[in-house]
Nucleic acid binder design. Structure first.
Lengths: 259, 259
DNA sequence: ACAAAAGTGTTCGCCTTACACCCATGG
DNA sequence: CCATGGGTGTAAGGCGAACACTTTTGT
């Protein structure tokens, strides 16, 4: 096949079908809420990092990290890569959220965005180099974002809040070991309401999602709390296309792609 | 911009990024299960229509209805159209399921498929013209399908079964009015297990999702059952990006696209 | 000793389940 | 009048919400 032929075919394809494919990610982390005087209070809330656009549709507006999908890269891998390149974060949780493809969503050409959502640990989030083009925003009070990104974040927030109640994704915000109070803080920050410590303890212990380490956390102002660890053996209760159903199909390593 | 320039740019785009975008749909309907002698028993089960591929990757294998995404057509509209063109069905429910884009899923070029799932009413499903290239299959025992379509159907089935328990999509299988026994049949067929009629009645009545019509269904072998109607005023309890959250954002007519 | 957080016990009300029972109609 | 599905009553078990209470540490 000559170059001319290939080029012609491409023109046809691109004119009649073929919108441009992009991948974006909504990243959530828990960070201490700021006081007026830039001191940090102990209370944690949901934040997300945004990047400032440097090119033209919506130049200078804040937007979700993302980029075009390279032909040779898996969807989830592209999400993880663009996320790392723009914010230098590594997610502990990454799942496809939704695909946005309405015709008018990007001025000019048709763009279809496969959007992922990610959770990162608090300590890692603290190390992000913020600058003129990357900044954290409180998830509940965002400025006006580029494209339809406000709606996307809103949907991702809803997804996070509903999913935290029936799955164990809250662990993704925490380190290897944690106290039940810390785990409760995560739930309280995500759902932003207070939770009865006694009932929370019993619910979590009964779920089998955590196991005692035997260790205690030292250095607290008062009685030292037990440290727990995530229980890898308990069932996921959720199957986005690779979090497989119990039976049949052989699981594949680490991606959520079905072939 | 000259034609040459445009063509060159296109070649670049298509070589480095831009996979091809497709839309497919998993369609579910309830149909009476077949007996060995081709008589129909009264029991209903889940079926889905598949089309036989006529072109080359996986030629002659069964596959989900679908097609390439035209540049000027909304995602959901493309799903509804390809579904109508291949099976002449009109869905009463249509929702985005997931986007499958793994590199090896289609031999040759990279294809990213935005997959929808749909429900159609039983009486309409009965009128589908089956032929050599369109046929109904029981959802639980499919042949080997083209591409990754077996996995896609498996995921759609899981989605249907979990969603039927907390939302009112079961109504989408039924007509304008229905008896509680018919509604229960839908649940039983989807979940394939029997449900206590007494408890089911109370649960549904308490949910507020249905209202009595005052009419009764005549012509049954025994006591005539009440007819109910779907209650449009009760809350959706579910928000794929347009099934909006209670508050803030103005609802948009009928599509699930966020702009 | 006292404040404050860790952790335990107990009660209440709601919802689901199981199952016994009555009701209405066609044959 | 009786078989069959429509429809009602009721009691037991599970689970979350509320809240009183005990335990253990640092200061």
């Amino acid at each position: 096949m000559s170059t001319a032929q290939r080029t012609t075919q491409c023109t046809t394809l691109s004119a009649t079908l073929s919108a441009t494919l992009a991948v974006s990610t909504v990243i959530f982390a828990l960070r201490p809420v700021e006081k007026h005087d830039d001191a940090a209070s102990g209370v944690m809330t949901l934040w997300l990092p945004l990047v400032r656009r440097t090119s033209d549709p919506h130049r200078n507006q804040w937007a979700l990290p993302g980029g075009w999908l390279p032909n040779h890269e898996e969807l989830a891998a592209a999400a993880a890569r663009t996320l790392r390149e723009t914010t230098s974060l590594t997610p502990t949780y990454l799942e496809q959220l939704y695909t946005f493809g309405a015709i008018g969503r990007s001025p000019g050409r048709r763009v279809v965005s496969v959007v992922y959502w990610a959770l990162v640990k608090s300590d890692e989030a603290a190390q992000v180099a913020v600058g003129d083009n990357v900044r954290w925003f409180p998830a509940d009070s965002l400025p006006q974002l580029a494209f339809d990104h406000n709606r996307i974040v809103e949907y991702a927030l809803w997804r996070l809040r509903t999913k935290v109640e029936y799955s164990r994704i809250a662990h993704s915000f925490l380190g290897e070991t944690f106290t039940l109070a810390q785990l409760r803080e995560v739930h309280e920050a995500v759902l932003h309401r207070s939770i009865d410590p006694a009932n929370f303890r019993r619910r979590v212990e009964a779920s089998g999602d955590v196991v005692e380490t035997g260790e205690f956390l030292a250095g607290t102002r008062h009685r030292p709390p037990r440290l727990y660890r995530f229980n890898d053996a308990s069932p996921p209760a959720t199957p986005p296309p690779s979090g497989r159903r119990p039976s049949d199909i052989p699981a594949r390593p680490h991606s959520e792609e079905a072939p």
